[in-house]
C-alpha cells in the first residue's frame, strides 16, 4: 500500500531492511552501478589483502538506504533529498540492519513533507552509514 500522510507521525520507525551481501551480490552491484574497483570483488587485490577482505561499496549502502526509503514510501511519494556519510567499512556476508525514524513532519508551500534519519547497523550494532532523507507525500 502506498504510504499516506496520515499513516505516520514524528517518531515513527521505518520498516527495517536486512541485508548480508556476498561477493556475488557485490558483483551484480558493480555491473549495475558501474564501480569496478577490485577492492569490492577481488580478494587478491593489494588493498583487499592489506585490509584482510574486500569491502562493501559505500555506494551500495547508500543505494540500500534508498531501497529502505522506497519500500517505506511504496510509491506514495517521492524522495526530494537523500544523503549519507561513510563512517565505517562493512564486510561481505555480514548481517546489516537498515532502518530509520521520522524526525520531522510538516507542510510547506502546499506540499506534505517528512524528514527521516537513517542508519546502517553492522553486526556489532555500530551505525557505519548514518543518513537522512526528505520525502514529499502524494496524499
Amino acid at each position: 500500500m502506498p504510504l499516506t500522510w496520515n499513516a505516520f507521525d514524528e517518531g515513527s520507525a521505518l520498516p527495517e531492511l536486512q541485508k548480508a551481501p556476498g561477493v556475488t551480490q557485490l558483483v551484480k552491484y558493480a555491473a549495475g552501478g558501474g564501480d569496478f574497483n577490485p577492492l569490492h570483488h577481488d580478494f587478491a587485490f593489494p588493498q583487499s589483502k592489506t585490509l584482510g577482505s574486500i569491502i562493501i561499496h559505500g555506494r551500495f549502502k547508500y543505494a540500500a538506504l534508498g531501497e529502505l526509503v522506497s519500500n517505506w514510501l511504496d510509491h506514495g511519494g517521492r524522495i526530494r533529498t537523500l544523503s549519507c556519510q561513510y563512517r565505517g567499512m562493512d564486510l561481505p556476508d555480514q548481517p546489516m540492519v537498515l532502518g530509520g525514524t521520522v524526525t520531522r513532519k510538516w507542510e510547506e508551500g502546499g506540499e506534505k513533507l517528512a524528514e527521516v534519519k537513517l542508519f546502517v547497523n553492522n553486526a556489532g550494532g555500530k551505525n557505519t552509514t548514518p543518513g537522512s532523507a526528505v520525502v514529499v507525500l502524494n496524499n
Binding site: 502506498p2 541485508k19 551481501p21 551480490q25 551484480k28 552491484y29 558493480a30 555491473a31 549495475g32 552501478g33 551500495f60 543505494a63 540500500a64 534508498g66 531501497e67 522506497s70 519500500n71 510509491h75
Partner: peptide, 25 residues
C-alpha cells in the same frame, strides 16, 4: 533493472513496466 538487481530490490515497479505504469510512472 541491472541497478535494482544489484541493490537487491524485489519491488516489481523497478523491473516490470506494467507495474511501473500502474504505480503512476
Amino acid at each position: 533493472r541491472a541497478f535494482a538487481r544489484g541493490v537487491g530490490y524485489s519491488d516489481p515497479v523497478y523491473f516490470d513496466e506494467e507495474a511501473a505504469k500502474a504505480a503512476g510512472y
